[in-house]
Amino acid sequence: MYSAKAYSAASDTSPLAASAITRRDLTEHDVQIEILFCGICHSDLHSVRNEWSEFMPTVYPIVPGHEIIGRVTKVGSAVTKYKSGDLAAVGCLVDSDRTCPNCQAGLEQFCPNLTLTFNSPDKHLGSVTYGGYSDSIVVDEHFVLSVPSNLDLAGAAPLLCAGITTYSPMRHWGVTKGKKVGVVGLGGLGHMGVKFAHALGSHVVVFTTSPHKKEDALRLGADEVVISRDTNAMQKHAGSFDFILDAVSAEHDINAYLNLLRLDGNLTLVGAVPKPLAVSAFGLIMGRRSLSGSNIGGIPETQEMLDFCGEHNITADVEVIPIQKVNEAYERLLTSDVKYRFTIDMASLNSE
């Protein structure tokens, strides 16, 4: 075991602050990574403040962070895919049972025995896992990902959560050239959805309640922008979409978007709305439409996504901050005061 620098929270009301944590020594299959950048996901904030206590109670102290970009510093004796000096990434998962049908299918995100990057039981240390707000991490080779060298590393960090969360359902529901795709909400998730749908060759329509976001939506790759409060503008698109990605995490009228789907169209939720949404049965029945949800992606698909980003030079739009401003960033997250994701430059941890 060794000591690593980190930022952790001691309780649900404590700010994140400098601390020391224990990392395990390498096993033969492990990779040790110096963390260069770590994205801030809204789930970091939820976990730090124990806002998901009903289904995922927080164990303190907590070190959040599951959008990790770094460089390999050491590898175990049996590691074959990585060597010291390689760029590497770690997303939301650091282990699973690898034997269940989901794991065998490359869908580790649905493993009943998965280990999350932070706040999950750590079988090696007997405590909980600590995430990427740290100077290093040790992860089994199977859960380490390769990073295309042409990508901006700070912008690549959010790909490990926001990127795969939006890429996976598009691949699952067959978003390709010639499809008409809607993206509801232009935030951290939505802006990645626009970039992916555009790169996949689809006709992309952004739905937003904010007229001032139109210019940015077009810059990101949208072909059209619809102000969702404009009933006439919405009606013009009725029954025409193959796929809609709903990235809104606040309460909203889902039926307004279901009515935009064509025959056999799908709407996938990726925004974690806190309360149940009212769904009209007729909105689904009349067009054999479907409503689904999606949760990140497995390891093979996450690597596919990173390679796709390398080919198309796709990264998140980020504001890079030092670790010392993380608490301020959390407060700004609550008011959506960021375009479109925060990424922490972990070199700033060395000044602590």
Rank of each mutant, 00 (worst) to 15 (best):
E224Q: 15
L160F: 01
A20F: 07
L218C: 11
L260N: 01
L200T: 13
K123V: 11
N350W: 11
A78W: 04
H237A: 09
V175N: 07
Y257I: 03
L260R: 01
I227S: 01
L333I: 13
G265P: 03
E34N: 15
Q104A: 12
G39Q: 14
G106W: 00
K180V: 07
M56N: 14
R262F: 00
H29R: 13
A156T: 08
M56C: 07
H42D: 03
S294L: 02
I62L: 14
A233E: 15
I21C: 04
G132T: 07
L93Y: 05
V90I: 12
N295A: 06
D30C: 06
H237E: 15
I164Y: 00
G155Y: 12
C100F: 07
D264V: 02
T343R: 11
W52V: 10
S336C: 13
N119A: 13
P112L: 09
D337R: 11
G163K: 04
P211C: 06
L151G: 02
E34S: 14
Q109W: 00
P169N: 03
S43H: 03
I314H: 11
Y60S: 13
V206L: 09
F243N: 04
F55A: 06
I164W: 00
A329R: 02
L200W: 07
L263N: 09
V326Q: 02
S127C: 13
R171L: 10
S8D: 02
C38S: 15
M346N: 15
V48L: 08
V320L: 03
G126F: 09
Y330Q: 13
A250N: 14
S210G: 03
G132R: 08
D86G: 11
R98I: 05
T99P: 02
S77E: 15
A10G: 07
I68T: 05
G287K: 14
L306C: 10
I323T: 00
K275T: 15
P158A: 09
H203Y: 09
L16N: 00
H142S: 05
S351L: 14
D307E: 13
Q109Y: 01
N255P: 09
S77W: 07
T343Y: 10
V63S: 00
A347W: 12
G297C: 07
Q109P: 01
G293D: 03
I314L: 12
N150T: 10
